[in-house]
Simulated scan of single mutants.
Amino acid sequence: MLALQPTPNQVEWAVDMAVRGKLRGNLIRQGEYRSQTGMSTIDPQGLFPPPTLKGGQRILANVMLGILAQESNL
């Protein structure tokens, strides 16, 4: 059995939310198996907070998508 992979639209949505610091666990449908196995919910933004840039700006979503395209099979 293969693990499900996100669609390009799902990846783009996640990147858009992540660069704004809003990719939280309450927005992600989490499998019932997590509660059955005693695992807690996931919070991606808590694991990978957005970096603080000089001048108060944020990383552009297009830059993040370019990195994902280069570093993965996106």
Rank of each mutant, 00 (worst) to 15 (best):
Q5F: 07
P6G: 03
T7G: 06
T7L: 10
P8A: 09
P8Y: 01
N9R: 12
N9P: 10
N9L: 14
N9Q: 15
N9S: 15
Q10K: 02
Q10C: 06
E12H: 02
W13N: 08
W13R: 11
W13G: 05
A14H: 03
V15D: 05
V15W: 00
V15M: 00
V15I: 09
D16E: 14
D16S: 15
D16K: 15
M17G: 04
A18R: 04
V19G: 00
V19T: 04
G21Y: 04
G21S: 01
K22V: 09
K22P: 02
K22S: 12
L23V: 00
L23N: 02
L23P: 01
R24Y: 11
R24T: 13
G25R: 04
G25I: 08
G25K: 08
G25E: 11
G25C: 10
N26W: 13
L27E: 14
L27P: 09
I28S: 07
I28Y: 08
I28P: 06
I28V: 14
I28A: 05
I28T: 08
Q30M: 05
Q30G: 11
G31K: 08
G31Y: 03
E32P: 13
E32Q: 12
Y33I: 12
Y33T: 08
Y33L: 11
R34K: 12
R34W: 07
S35R: 11
Q36D: 14
T37S: 14
T37R: 15
T37V: 14
T37W: 14
G38Y: 12
G38S: 11
G38V: 13
G38K: 09
M39Q: 15
S40H: 14
S40D: 14
S40M: 10
S40I: 07
S40G: 15
S40L: 13
I42P: 08
D43R: 01
P44F: 00
P44L: 03
P44W: 02
P44G: 01
Q45K: 00
G46H: 03
G46S: 05
G46V: 04
G46K: 03
G46P: 03
G46I: 00
L47C: 11
L47G: 03
L47P: 06
F48E: 03
P50C: 02
P50Y: 00
P51S: 05
T52G: 07
T52S: 10
L53V: 05
K54M: 15
G55N: 06
G55I: 01
G55P: 07
G56H: 03
G56T: 01
G56P: 06
R58N: 07
I59C: 04
L60C: 09
A61M: 02
A61E: 00
A61F: 04
A61S: 08
N62P: 01
N62A: 10
N62Q: 09
V63L: 11
G66I: 04
G66D: 07
I67R: 01
I67M: 02
I67K: 05
